[in-house]
Amino acid sequence: MPIRAICFDLDNTLWSIDPVIKQAEKALFDWLRQHYPKIPKQFSVNELAKRRQRLLEEQPELLNNLGLLRKMGLAQAAVEAGYKAEIAEPAFEIFQQARHQVTFYPDVLPVLKRLQKRYILGTLTNGSADINRVGLGDIMSFSLMASDVNAAKPHPALFEAACQRASARPEEVVHVGDDEDCDVAGALAVGMKAVWLNRIYKTPSGKYQPHAIITNLGELERLLQTWESTL
């Protein structure tokens, strides 16, 4: 069946997330030191991460809204340090501003701009990245977060919502992502074509059988051409 749409994961698929989060944490702590210094004196980055993990264990549904999870952790830390919980909102926005300062992998923008001419493009993420804030708003037709459907990948809800937004059947949609357990498993479960973007040459787990394994988006273009030639 012809391919109508392609959806992409974001973090570690279109950009490397670790340096982004590291810089965002630094920006947040610099801001806290200036405005609410008792918080960074009392809590380190690791301690706040452990706090979020405890919250997640107590409320597993927060996995579906990682932004809310982070705000709740900040609110708790603020109260314990003697501030009002409400400061979590501006603190989170400082984090988000830096979190959206991403550096795309070199292959990303050229390929997406070419694919945009032939397919409906969209994004699916368990994170909190906003495509408009990273500069993809003019390329992507839709963007879905786990918080939009109250279910994180690999739950089928996010993938089914993508098909609805693209007005396409699952077999007409390709999903591209870096995570076998979230992206490949979720796409296969609903009948999409699953493409594992394995930029760092991980050894396949063997748990799933993606339709293809690629290491960059240039390979995706060639793969699509091959599939189309067989129709």
Rank of each mutant, 00 (worst) to 15 (best):
Q34A: 15
A78L: 04
A212L: 08
E25F: 04
L158W: 02
N64A: 14
E221W: 13
E219H: 12
K202F: 09
H175C: 06
M72W: 02
L223H: 11
E171N: 15
R4Y: 05
G191E: 01
N150P: 08
L231I: 08
V102D: 00
A152K: 03
G73E: 01
V176A: 01
M72G: 08
M140I: 06
N132I: 14
L48A: 14
Y83T: 06
D148T: 02
P210A: 05
P60W: 07
F92C: 04
L10G: 01
L197T: 02
L217N: 02
C163V: 09
E171F: 14
N216F: 09
L74C: 07
I3V: 12
L74K: 02
E221H: 12
W31D: 07
H100A: 06
G186A: 04
N12A: 05
I139T: 07
L28I: 03
R33N: 13
F104D: 03
R4V: 06
E180L: 10
K207P: 03
I21W: 08
A162Y: 02
F142H: 03
V173M: 13
G137T: 00
L224N: 12
M192Q: 06
K41V: 15
V173S: 07
H100E: 06
P154Y: 00
I17K: 04
Q23R: 15
A27H: 04
A24G: 12
W31Q: 04
P19W: 09
W227M: 08
A75I: 07
A152T: 08
D183F: 01
I200F: 14
I39F: 10
L136E: 00
I139F: 10
A91M: 09
W15Q: 06
I139Q: 07
A166L: 07
D181H: 11
L121C: 08
R51C: 12
D18R: 10
T125Y: 11
E228A: 13
V102R: 03
Y105A: 07
K41H: 15
V176K: 00
S167E: 13
A151F: 06
H100L: 10
L74V: 04
S143Y: 00
W227N: 03
T123Y: 03
E57H: 13
K113W: 10
N216R: 10
Y83W: 14
V184T: 06
L66I: 13
E61L: 09
V108M: 12
G82L: 09
E57I: 11
L217V: 04
G137E: 02
P60V: 08
E221Y: 12
S167A: 15
Y208P: 02
P156F: 05
E228K: 12
A152I: 09
M140H: 05
D178A: 04
D179I: 11
E160V: 11
A129E: 10
A81R: 02
